[in-house]
């Protein structure tokens, strides 16, 4: 059973991806992004990233400043943040020490990846739409965020 992620995980992820907390919580329900990231990327890195994020929040920094600070923080915090963004968007992650070894942990991680929403489409191989939808323009971007 997967561990309930701390709310900071969703807040930080929303800041890094541009998607709402609600959308990310929905994805986490279907595929364990929080726990599996730790398993594959390497234990402890997420905790370190979240502690840096918490420190900024405690200091009362503005969200955009926090995001910029984390993405300019250098290794390992910056690397962890970028790997987390890629995991949310593409559903794939590699161990920190083995960057060529990209993995899509489950079909649900692939299907819930944010890239599909960003391009206003469904994951290839996972359509929830009906016959003939392709003859009409996709729904507006806001419907996917």
């Amino acid at each position: 059973m997967s561990i309930q992620p701390p709310s900071a995980f969703f807040d930080l992820s929303a800041l890094l991806t541009g998607f709402t907390v609600q959308t990310l919580e929905f994805a986490q329900q279907s595929a364990d992004f929080f726990g599996v990231f730790d398993e594959i990327y390497g234990s402890g890195h997420m905790a370190k990233l979240l502690s840096v994020y918490d420190a900024h929040v405690q200091a009362g920094d503005a969200p955009n400043d926090i995001g910029k600070a984390i993405l300019d923080a250098g290794s390992p915090v910056e690397d962890t943040a970028r790997a987390l963004m890629a995991f949310w968007y593409l559903g794939q992650v590699a161990p920190l020490n083995d960057p060529e070894n990209l993995q899509i942990p489950s079909g649900n991680h692939y299907a819930q990846a944010l890239v599909w929403r960003a391009v206003q489409a469904h994951p290839t191989g996972v359509s929830t739409q009906q016959f003939g939808y392709w003859a009409n323009p996709p729904a507006p971007l806001n419907d996917y965020l």
Binding site: H122, V126, F131, G132, W134
Partner: peptide, 22 residues
């Protein structure tokens, strides 16, 4: 299929004919 036929559904546009129709 463009309609339900012989026990199989109409295409749902999974966009993955190659390599697999789920």
């Amino acid at each position: 299929n463009s309609e339900y036929r012989n026990g199989r559904p109409a295409c749902q546009g999974n966009s993955s004919c190659i390599p697999i129709c789920p």
